[in-house]
């Protein structure tokens, strides 16, 4: 079996967004997600000697991140136990009993399955994005995911607007094919 190699110098460039997207869907707080990603990289660096090369670098980092997320929730829950829980229900006799219906789960609300599917979809997009040439991926990310203005991207990357649209076109064509292959066909 081919052994995978470890190269921490490329971690930030290659895996930051993937790990961040993985985390943000689980903790719903940007700052906490950033901290957890940062801690994951540092933990990976410290335990590099444990990397056997049987899995890819990314899989190995995700395994570390999962433990970090679990630790985060353990800490949060132990703090929650100390907090006072308050719930207020109307004591009005006319509306008595309505509270139960008001608090029943909304069937149209997002289900856990939807959330999981969205997370997996996001990760599949990152998988396809990682196969693009660096500049195409960067322009696509800035334009599509960060919603930057065309002019701002052109100024930052020192390219013309027509260059930008060529890069976007190539990125979108490649992504659409990749997603067709890896997501819709499955």
């Amino acid at each position: 079996m081919a052994k995978h190699k470890i190269n921490p110098n490329d971690w930030i460039k290659l895996y930051s967004d993937y790990l961040f997207n993985y985390t943000i869907t689980r903790v719903s707080d940007r700052e906490i997600a950033q901290d957890l990603v940062s801690e994951t990289f540092l933990a990976g660096l410290k335990s590099m000697s444990n990397f056997k090369g049987e899995a890819t670098e990314r899989t190995w980092l995700v395994a570390i991140l999962k433990r970090k997320i679990i630790d985060h929730y353990r800490k949060t829950n132990s703090n929650k136990g100390k907090a006072e829980v308050r719930m207020s229900y109307s004591s009005d006799s006319e509306t008595e009993g309505d509270w139960l219906e008001e608090r029943v789960a909304d069937p149209y609300d997002k289900t856990a399955e939807d959330t999981i599917e969205n997370t997996e979809l996001g990760l599949a997009i990152y998988d396809c994005l990682s196969k693009l040439p660096e500049k195409q991926a960067k322009v696509f990310k800035m334009k599509t995911l960060l919603n930057h203005e065309t002019e701002a991207i052109c100024n930052e990357l020192n390219i013309t607007a027509s260059n930008l649209w060529v890069l976007i076109h190539r990125a979108r064509t490649a992504l659409a094919s990749c997603m067709e292959e890896n997501w819709f066909k499955k």
Partner: peptide, 21 residues
């Protein structure tokens, strides 16, 4: 892409992680 609610780090957030790493 819209349905996935995909998220990513902006430049300043990425810089912060990069610096500490």
């Amino acid at each position: 892409i819209n349905n996935s609610k995909i998220d990513c780090l902006d430049d300043s957030e990425l810089k912060k992680i990069k610096q500490s790493f």
